[in-house]
Design a protein around this nucleic acid. Sequence first.
RNA 1: CGGGGUAUAGCGCAGUCUGGUAGCGCGGAAGUUUUGGGAACUUCAGGUCGCAGGUUCGAAUCCUGCUGCCCCGACCA
Length: 467
Amino acid sequence: MTPFTIVWSPPGAPDPPGEPKKDCEPPMRLSRYFLPILRETPKEAEIVSHRLMLRAGMIRQEASGIYAWLPLGLRVLQKVGQIVREEMDRAGAIELLMPTLQLADLWRETGRYEAYGPEMLRIVDRHKRELLYGPTNEDMITEIFRAYIRSYRDLPKILYHIQWKFRDEQRPRFGVMRGREFLMKDAYSFDVDEASSRLSYNRMFVSYLRIFARMGLRAIPMRAETGPIGGDLSHEFIILAQTGESGVFCHADVLNLPVPGEDIDYDADLTPVIEAWTRLYAATEDVHDAARFERETPEDKRIHTRGIEVGQVFYFGDKYSKPMQALIAGPDGVERPFQGGSYGVGVSRLVGALIEANHDEAGIIWPEAVAPFRIGLANLKVGDGATDAACAELYAAFQKAGVDVLYDDTDERPGAKFAKLDLIGLPYQVIVGPKGLAEGKVEVKTRATGDRQSYPLAEAVARLTEA
RNA sequence: CGGGGUAUAGCGCAGUCUGGUAGCGCGGAAGUUUUGGGAACUUCAGGUCGCAGGUUCGAAUCCUGCUGCCCCGACCA
């Protein structure tokens, strides 16, 4: 092999001193940002998250079930993705990135090319080769795995990626909650036998509890059908919402179970956590057992509502490894197909689900962990020396503290600014106007509670930048 | 994929039945007065009426075909 040298471009001349580089300032002034708010609701949007995402300038529909993510929406999508990534890493999963396009031949090895039906978007390239836009990646990850891994000594492994998928749904709806193109985290576990595969399953299960909890969501693992991917053990993670797509039944106490902290040891025995979370009855209507529900759940603890699926974990054994001959040698020297599982989180769907779970009449109410900005800074009288100066000071202080702040420096009327900030749902609004400044104070409004308090500038900064 | 709708300015809509200069509100631009919960007035810009045929002196409007999008159902992260 001929080694080759990577040639780096020589570094450019140092920046000239003196002039502050305005171009480098993060574009967090509303006057320079791109936030196309809609005052009226586009008629195609039926459910609240879809309406609010369109109105708040988060997304734009480009085709049925296909959306462009505008700057505000992208920030949320990225925050959700980052939480998923951090928790996957914490659980010992390893990130990679597989392509969106896959060869049909790969899927023929497992028989899924024929099995998938019209939901799969099939593409032919200029060489008449058949490709498909991946709806999932079990086949490809198995192909990657079998190319490199031969021995039980290399196991266990959990690999994941966060990538766009496409399923040509017959009827897309609910905005990003059921689009055709969607961003998904999918993880795949590789183990030598069933017992260890279930340990991987448990890791992902616990990781999922943490992922959703970090977003301020109470997601309930429910026994679920295994669906077309197959296997014999599966849980759907469901958040309760009136607008959910499927009916669910569960024991009320499952809503109050403790979620493991970030000090959870994924190498320790996770069985007690799994048992605690699976002991109480929780099932989607597809697999609901009314008799068992009534037998196991006291009448005053029975919850029957609707829910949105935001994640699913599967154990599927050798479903892919066997037909694809992804074999690993065990300690006894015998080669066997690996035991696998797959674990999905609907990242783009979560953005819609988060809004379904967190909104009011005025708009979105972002949980802090996924808010596009933590603070909305409203200058109520642009052009007034005192308010401009106070806002500049606050803006600089928040930025210095590393807090995401969107500064509304437009010359709109106060009412319009309030309505806009309520709509986009930033957790805190810092309201700066002549009235408050006369007393040396600014107002801090907490979006979730509507609570408003006036503080001197320094105290407002201190309160909003602590931890 | 069955059933039902809809397509007119960036968004929400009227006009179509009964063919005759394409309208309203919001939004946008300019100006004046305003300014702590989506201001008022004046002026202006913005539309091959989804696409393609047809009927007619004349089509947003009538006829035929096509397409996009939405809703209900079945299906799905």
